[in-house]
Structures are given as structure tokens and as C-alpha cells.
Design a protein around this nucleic acid. Structure first.
Lengths: 223, 223
DNA sequence: GTCAACCCGATTGTCTGACATTCTTTCAAT
DNA sequence: ATTGAAAGAATGTCAGACAATCGGGTTGAC
């Protein structure tokens, strides 16, 4: 009777594992926008069967991370500037609201968590690791959303997160954007820590406007 | 030169068909909250294979209409009043914004479409067909969201629609709620048709507050 | 040479069947 | 009654198969 230290709290299924891997791959730009994902290839690469892969693809489809057209299969959707604008507008709705709610109900230990993530972003911003910048920035907002007191708001935002991160990655590569972003996020943090709802909303809105402008520049420079 | 009447209706796949059927079944309360969905049974009832069913279930899981716990399978989540509140709050954010935007940019033919859907809801409200009421009410808001000029706003709302419809079904069964709802929706319609942004936002907000109150009553009466 | 029809390979949609793993429930032993 | 173990049910995953469909290239007609 060997004491198998098998404390798997949540048994990661192949499906979950696959969704995670593909999400990360899409997020880090392994697949070009518009490119098609061939099932048999993915199966081979991931070492899984088609049914399992297809289940994972359905999950990703629902997240809008891929598109599945009947008889043509899954592909990476191309993001237009128009769509980016729409996303930033919805982000504004959601994040401004979340920041305000968060400021109204924040607890000390959550403030600490926020500060910690801000420090992490600061470190990332100092480096040139844009992936780390994107991740830490996402963390910062995730904490806010997680503490806004509305699980649906958080859920909806998470549904947008992949695409948000995509744009964030682009705009962070602009010179000076990370530093500027850091300052804006500090404003948000301070307003929340102070419990100032109005200031939190305002800071959040200002941050988004600037992020949007940065994203526009970075996108247009590519096209 | 004969205009090929081949209006490429997108080929309904078994998966899509199944998602639609199950979604409808969940709305109309065929499954009790908390009850488990046994794959083999569903396969037999729907006349499809397990892989197809499982794909459909993954889609529904992403819509949060069902929950899938590893090794325990899919089940209908029990809806809490807390969650319902959260959904109504997010609905308010989204729909108020959409109604305002819609009022600012509506075109005559879209006004006509809105009116048509309002008439349809009126007919449904007069009858006692609560499924029809839910469907037509969803149509009404779908038109608004589709014409708000922000595809992401529409997408996010659609992601919530399943659960919205669920609550709508509950509250519509309250005596007088359908009629009251009709009056509120008429207000929204008129404000949009008049291009009055402020009035549209206000009417939309009022409608949601009342719907929320009705939902609360209908949920509490069950618990 | 251009354009259209046609055919073929590639890919997807779907099914059947199978098997190991993991619950659940029943039943027996203490 | 509590516990534990065995039986049964349901899920997670795979392999393989086949028809329907799509995309691209070749052929044929003008």
C-alpha cells in the first residue's frame, strides 16, 4: 500500500488540457489570423483523437477564439480595426463599471493583491518581455473584475479577454506605451485603494481611451 | 441568367440542430435544475451518436446552460437569485447602452422590423404561450442589439441570451407580467423610433428594473 | 487564350464500437 | 448502524470507417 500522493483536486481531462494549449497557442500568435486549423494535423501534434479535439474546438468556438464554418472547419478569425473599436467600447462599459464597483467594496487583502500585480506589471514593463506585460496586465484587471461583486460581469469580461490580450500585445510593443500604461494603472489602483468610486471610474476610462489610441496606432502601422 | 435561387442556407449540422433542440428543452423546463443529463439517454432520444452529442454539450457548456463536471457528466445548473441579479445588472449595462445607440442611428426599415417584432410579442402576450412570449421578446431585443452599431455588444449579449431567456420564461408566467412588459417595450420602441437617445436609455432601464423585480418574485415563489 | 465544366484529392460531419476509469449504489460483514 | 467491498452504470477517450462537401487543377469548348 504505497501512499500514492495523488491529490488531483480537479482531474484535468484531455479536453480541458487541449483547450488550454490551443488557447495559449492562439494567444501567442502561433496561428496566423485567417489560417485554417486542420483537424488531422492538430490531432497529430497534440497526440489526441479527433473526437476529443473536436470537443475542444467547440469550446473555443464558443469563446469566439476560432470560427467553425460547416464543411470548411475551424479557422482563426481575422480581427479588423472596426472590431477592435467595438471591443474597446464594450471594455469601457465593463471595466469602468467593474472598477467603480471594486472601489466601493474592496478589502485590504484584495488591495494587497492588486498592488502585488501592479508591481509585477511594473517589472514586466521595465523589461522588454511583451508576453509578460500582457499577462501581468491581464492579471491586474482580472483581480478588479474578480472583486467587482458581479460574477457575470467577470465572466463576460473573461470571454473578451483573449481578444483584449491580443490587442494589448500589439499596443504594448509601442515605445513608451508600457510605461504610460503603468502610470494609468497606478491611478486606477490608487482610486480603488482609496475606495473612491468616481475616481476609479474616471481613471479606468482614461486608461481605456489611451489604450484604444495606442492600439489604433499599432494596428494602422501594420496595415 | 436565371437567378440561381440557391440561397445557401447554411447547412444545419447535427451539432447545431442538437444545440438548438437542447437549448429549447432547457428553456421550456424539460429538465429540472440540478438534474443530470445522461449521454446515452439523450443520444437515444435525439437519435444521434455520442460524439455529436458531446460536441453539442460542449457548446451548451460554454453558454453556461449546462455544467460539465469531469467524470460526473453534464447537468442543469441550479440558478441562484444572486446569479440572476448579476445577470440583470449586466443586462442593464448592455441593453441600456444598446438602446441608446440604436436610437441614435436607427433607419426606417429597422424601425419597421422593430415594430413587427413588437406586434408579434403583442400577439404572444395575448395568448398564454409562454414559449412564444420568450421567443418574441428575445427577437425584439435582438433587433435592437443588431442595430446598435457594435457587433461585440451584440455578441456579448447573445452569450447571455440563453440565461436571460430562462429568467424571462419564469417571469412571463406571472399574471399580468406579459402585458406590463409589452407596455414597457412599447416605450422603448417609441423612443428609438423617435431617435431620442435619452428616452430610449431611460425606457430600457425602466423595463429592466421591472423585469428584475418580476423575476425576483417568480424565483422566490419557487424556492 | 479565356472561360466554363468536370473530376479528384483533401477535409469535414457523423457513426459504430470498444475499453479503461471513475462514480454510485447495493449488499454483506462486523 | 457503520463500514467496506463488489457490481453496475456512466463517462473519458480512442480507433477506424464512410458519405458529403469543398477547393483546386485539368480538360474541353469556344
Amino acid at each position: 500500500m504505497r501512499p500514492e500522493m495523488n491529490l488531483r483536486i480537479s482531474p484535468r481531462t484531455v479536453q480541458q488540457e487541449t483547450v488550454g494549449k490551443l488557447r495559449l497557442a492562439i494567444f501567442s500568435g502561433v496561428f496566423q489570423p485567417g489560417s485554417r486549423l486542420v483537424e488531422s494535423q492538430l490531432c497529430a501534434q497534440l497526440g489526441i483523437s479527433r473526437p476529443s479535439l473536436r470537443e475542444a474546438l467547440r469550446s473555443l468556438e464558443a469563446e469566439r477564439l476560432i470560427e467553425i464554418v460547416p464543411n470548411r472547419g475551424p479557422s482563426i478569425p481575422a480581427l479588423s480595426w472596426e472590431e477592435a473599436t467595438a471591443i474597446y467600447e464594450v471594455r469601457e462599459l465593463l471595466e469602468v463599471e467593474a472598477a467603480g464597483r471594486c472601489a466601493a467594496r474592496i478589502l485590504p487583502e484584495q488591495v494587497q493583491a492588486l498592488e502585488k500585480s501592479l508591481v509585477a506589471f511594473e517589472a514586466a514593463a521595465a523589461s522588454n518581455d511583451s508576453a509578460a506585460q500582457v499577462m501581468t496586465a491581464a492579471d491586474f484587471y482580472s483581480i478588479i473584475l474578480a472583486n467587482c461583486g458581479n460574477a457575470i460581469l467577470e465572466e463576460v469580461h473573461r470571454g473578451l479577454l483573449a481578444r483584449i490580450s491580443f490587442f494589448r500585445g500589439r499596443s504594448m510593443s509601442l515605445k513608451g506605451r508600457a510605461a504610460s500604461s503603468l502610470a494609468e494603472m497606478k491611478d486606477i489602483y490608487e482610486a480603488i485603494a482609496a475606495g473612491d468610486v468616481k475616481a476609479a471610474r474616471k481613471a479606468s476610462k482614461r486608461h481605456l481611451l489611451k489604450a484604444k489610441a495606442a492600439a489604433k496606432i499599432s494596428i494602422e502601422s501594420v496595415t
